[in-house]
Design a binder for these strands. Sequence first.
DNA 1: GGTTGACACCTAGTAGTAATAGGTATACAT
DNA 2: ATGTATACCTATTACTACTAGGTGTCAACC
Lengths: 104, 104
Amino acid sequence: MQSEVLKGSVDVLLLSVLRTGEAHGYRIVELVREQSEGAFDLAEGTVYPALYRLERAGELASRWETVGGRRRRVYRLTRRGRRELVRRRREWEAYSRAMGAALA
Amino acid sequence: MQSEVLKGSVDVLLLSVLRTGEAHGYRIVELVREQSEGAFDLAEGTVYPALYRLERAGELASRWETVGGRRRRVYRLTRRGRRELVRRRREWEAYSRAMGAALA
DNA sequence: GGTTGACACCTAGTAGTAATAGGTATACAT
DNA sequence: ATGTATACCTATTACTACTAGGTGTCAACC
C-alpha cells in the first residue's frame, strides 16, 4: 500500500509548518494545531522523536537558542526537506484522492 | 492525533468495499484495487489479519463456501460494521479536511 | 516565600498496524 | 509436468504514535 504516506502523516505536518520559517518544538506543536484548525494536537512525545528522525534524515537542521533564559532548539527545513515536503504532499494528495474514490 | 484514523485506513477500505454485498478475501483485495483506481494493492498478509480483527470486533461476519472445489471464506458487514463504516468515513473526512488545511 | 501555570525539552516503554516473506492447496491450460 | 490463477493462512519484523513520566526556567499571584 506504499504506506509511508500513512506512517509519515506527522512528518509531513512538521515539514509543512516549517515551510514559511523556522520554529522550535513547542511552537511547532502550536503551529500544527493552528494550521489544522485544531484537529491535530500532537503530543510532545510524538513530536520530539519525529524531529530527531527528520534531522537524522537530513530533512531538518537545528540550532540552540536562548530566549529569556529558556533554551530552545530551533528547526528549519533543509533543501532536502523542502524537496521531501513537495514529494510527501503529492503522495498525500494521491492517497487522499484514492481514499475518496474508494469511499465514495 | 486520534490516530485510529491512520491506523484504520485498511479497515475502512475493507468495510467500504463490502457495503454493497459480501465477498471473500481474495476478491476483497481486487475490489479495493478497483475502487481505489489501482492505488491500493493490499498484500494478503495485510488483509487476512485485518479481516479477523474486524470479525473479532463484531464488524464483520463470515461463512465458508465452496465454489468449483475451492474453499472461500465469505465476509459480510454486520449492523455494527455498517455503523462503524459511517463513523470511520466521517472520521476520514475530518482528518482529510484537516490535512488539507494544514498542507494548503 | 511558596505555589501555580505557561513555556520548553527529553526519553523509556508500549500497543498496534502494515509489510515481509514465507507456507498450503485446488483447478485449469499448455 | 509445469505454470498460473485462485484462495487461504501465519510468524516475524519494522516502525509509528502514544503514554506517562521526568527536568528545568520564568512570571504572577497570594
